[in-house]
C-alpha cells in the first residue's frame, strides 16, 4: 500500500467509525460524505479513474444530497438518550471481530504478498480510463446497461408513487401512507 493509499485509508476508516458512532444523524451524514470521498480517493489510487469520478458525482454528490434533503425535511433532533446500550454494543463488536478473525487470515498470508497477476500490456495502458470502461460497457455489457436504465426508471416511478399523498391538502399527519390508514 502506497503512502497515499495508507493516508486515504486512515480517513476512510475514521469516517466510517464516525458514521456509526456519532449521535446526531446530520453529523453522521457529513462523516459519510468524507467516507465516500475517501473511497473515491482509493479508487484513484487503484487507478480506476473513471470510477473515482463517478463515485464523487453519483455518491458524494447525488445520493448524499438526497439523504441530506430527507434529513433536513424530517428535522430530526439527536436521538434522545436511548443508545444501543453497552451489552448490545459489546455483542455487535464481538460478532464483527469474530467475522474479521475468520475472514482476515487468508488475506494476510502468502496471498497478501502476491502482487498484480497476469496483466496484459493493453490492460495496463488503458485500465480504468473512460475509453476502456466504455468499450466494455457498450460491448459485452450492453444488455445489462440498457436494463440498468430500466431499473432507474422503475426506481424513480416507485419513489414518486411512494411519496404521493392521497389528498395533497393534508399536512404531514399519521395515516398518509396509502389510501385510508390509521385515523
Amino acid at each position: 500500500m502506497s503512502f497515499m493509499g495508507f493516508f486515504i485509508s486512515v480517513f476512510a476508516l475514521a469516517s466510517a467509525i464516525g458514521v456509526v458512532s456519532v449521535r446526531n444523524p446530520l453529523y453522521s451524514a457529513f462523516c459519510l460524505i468524507v467516507h465516500l470521498l475517501a473511497i473515491a480517493g482509493l479508487y484513484a489510487v487503484l487507478e480506476s479513474h473513471f470510477l473515482a469520478v463517478s463515485q464523487i458525482v453519483v455518491y458524494a454528490g447525488a445520493i448524499m444530497v438526497l439523504v441530506l434533503f430527507v434529513l433536513m425535511l424530517l428535522n430530526l433532533k439527536t436521538e434522545e438518550g436511548r443508545g444501543p446500550g453497552v451489552l448490545r454494543t459489546c455483542i455487535a463488536v464481538a460478532v464483527g471481530g469474530v467475522v474479521l478473525l475468520v475472514a482476515l487470515p487468508p488475506l494476510v498470508g502468502r496471498f497478501a504478498r502476491m502482487s498484480v497477476i497476469q496483466i496484459s500490456d493493453a490492460f495496463r495502458r488503458s485500465e480504468g480510463t473512460v475509453r476502456a470502461i466504455g468499450a466494455e460497457l457498450y460491448g459485452d455489457y450492453a444488455v445489462q446497461f440498457e436494463l440498468s436504465s430500466l431499473v432507474l426508471l422503475i426506481g424513480v416511478v416507485g419513489a414518486v408513487m411512494l411519496s404521493k399523498r392521497k389528498n395533497p391538502t393534508l399536512g404531514p399527519r399519521p395515516g398518509g401512507l396509502f389510501a385510508g390508514g390509521k385515523q
Partner: peptide, 29 residues
C-alpha cells in the same frame, strides 16, 4: 469495475426508493 458501475446504478435507485419509504413511514408513525 463494470460491476461497481452497476452497483452504483442500483444504489442510486435504491436510495431513491429507500428514502421515499423512510418518508412514508415517517408520515405514518
Amino acid at each position: 469495475q463494470i460491476a461497481v458501475l452497476f452497483t452504483m446504478v442500483i444504489a442510486a435507485a435504491e436510495s431513491a426508493v429507500g428514502l421515499a419509504i423512510i418518508l412514508a413511514v415517517f408520515r405514518s408513525v
